[in-house]
Write a protein that binds this DNA or RNA. Structure first.
Lengths: 134, 134
DNA sequence: CGGCATCCGGAACGATACTG
DNA sequence: CAGTATCGTTCCGGATGCCG
């Protein structure tokens, strides 16, 4: 299974190094970084900065994500302590997702990153055109 | 080909929307976000904050990356205007990679993100343990 | 409504060998 | 030293169908 799958049995970690240095191959923070920086993880986290979202609303907000990937992404982020999942036992069921304190801090960095990219999209497009022209 | 492959022919962009909103499916900044937030892209950019690096040194710094992926990652980041590639025409060849102004701004955000994750690794590990216990 | 199980094609990735 | 070429494997992620 994918490492994005929260249900996957984590490999035995033959020698789980606890040093917090992402540059080290076996650092525990690396897989977490991949999860929050993943294709949909970034967008889900940043979307949730606007406040609590329900599943369907979040799916509409993150344009192009499939049901399956949203579900997987949310589970992974919940497992990593980035978001909180609150279930209303009603019919039909209600589920609300909110950022944890940690998730909010992470989302803020990601929002900053996105802002930089969006406001420099012209520079980037120009660089791409130049690269291909050569 | 992979969208991480800088040589890949970009799809014809049937209707290239220029709005800078990553939440929109066809926003131009989305693929760029994926590149800089990719598994190796993040580490390469943050590593380069320490100064210019040569290929081999960067490979040693980013523990676990293969030659192939480092090469691809650097080309993609160069194409997107994040890094600059300077070739010394000597024997043996010398190639130095440095961050562009844009790349430095992006790398700073990513470094902040990594710092948050590293300094909260205990919280994260606890959340993961709790999630699996249930 | 908010999921989960299954299938499956294509994309990403790693190992290795080779080159200027 | 700094890559490229090729190959084989893994895994992401979309589509579909079912359930409480």
């Amino acid at each position: 299974m994918s490492n994005l799958d929260p249900m996957s049995t984590r490999q035995p970690d033959p020698d789980p190094i606890l040093e917090a240095d992402v540059f080290a191959r076996d650092c525990a923070s690396r897989p977490v970084l991949q999860n929050v920086a993943s294709r949909w993880g970034v967008l889900a986290l940043v979307a949730l900065r606007a406040g609590p979202y329900r599943f369907s609303a979040l799916r509409r907000r993150v344009d192009g994500i499939s049901e399956r990937m949203l579900s997987q992404t949310l589970q992974t982020l919940e497992r990593d302590g980035m978001i909180h999942r609150e279930v209303q036992q009603t019919i039909p069921p209600h589920v609300e997702y909110t950022l944890t304190e940690l998730g909010a801090a992470v989302a803020e960095q990601l929002a900053g990153l996105i802002h930089i990219l969006e406001s420099n999209i012209d520079t980037i497009t120009a660089a791409q055109a130049e690269y291909h022209r050569e």
